[in-house]
Design a protein around this nucleic acid. Structure first.
Lengths: 108, 108
DNA sequence: CTAACATGTGAACACCTATTCACTTGTTAG
DNA sequence: CTAACAAGTGAATAGGTGTTCACATGTTAG
């Protein structure tokens, strides 16, 4: 198996990996993900709390759900979205730590 | 301080976070990052091993270095690039685990 | 059934960006 | 100095995509 768990990643895995990062790479979509990671939340609540149209939120949630970044659960008229698994929060935490790190003098 | 280390992320941090993910969201750029994460490597070696033009690799490395995802080190004519810190590999590992996870029946 | 609400979706547009090409800058060797 | 190699850069372009608008679907209440 040439597709192990270290960094010798096979090409299809790279495409999938890039797709996940790409989905998190949009500020609006990232805010939606963060809202879902905190707690299960309905589409309309995401829209109102982030001041976005429900339509836009739905568009983004569709992509996020297709990539299994979030999962959906219906409760009456509303559909609640939440983080798909723990890896997502792990990724977000690592990136936040990366940002919080002091500049190592390798910029500019 | 409203900008703590949990998910109540302030807006400028979200922009920065999204920018990092966006940089990893391109397959070509992600391959370059993976090459750098494995071991310090020169621009020309990245280009030849990934079958890309040196120009394209330089363009991407500029962006990656600006975001402190990679760092550069000159050795003679060549410039070696490597991962900026451990958080990057942590993020990549988490995402790989996310991919490797069995489908939880929430697709399609 | 209808009305009202919540969510999903298709098309269109404006914007962004990855890539290529030509060129410049830097470095070592002679 | 020049020649050859490595890396960086600016402009132009083709393709991708986030957003909006109008509408469709689904669900509950009456």
């Amino acid at each position: 198996m040439s597709c192990q768990h270290d960094y010798s990643v096979c090409d299809p895995a790279i495409a999938q990996l890039a797709d996940l990062f790409h989905l998190l790479g949009d500020p609006t979509r990232l805010r939606i993900v963060l809202a879902c990671v905190m707690a299960p939340i309905a589409v309309s609540d995401i829209a109102s709390s982030l001041e976005l149209s429900s339509s836009l939120v739905s568009h983004h949630l569709r992509l996020l759900r297709a990539a299994r970044i979030v999962k959906s659960e219906r409760q009456g008229k509303q559909v609640f979205y939440s983080a798909a698994d723990a890896h997502i929060s792990g990724v977000l935490n690592d990136m936040l730590e990366h940002i919080a790190e002091p500049s190592n003098g390798n910029e500019a």
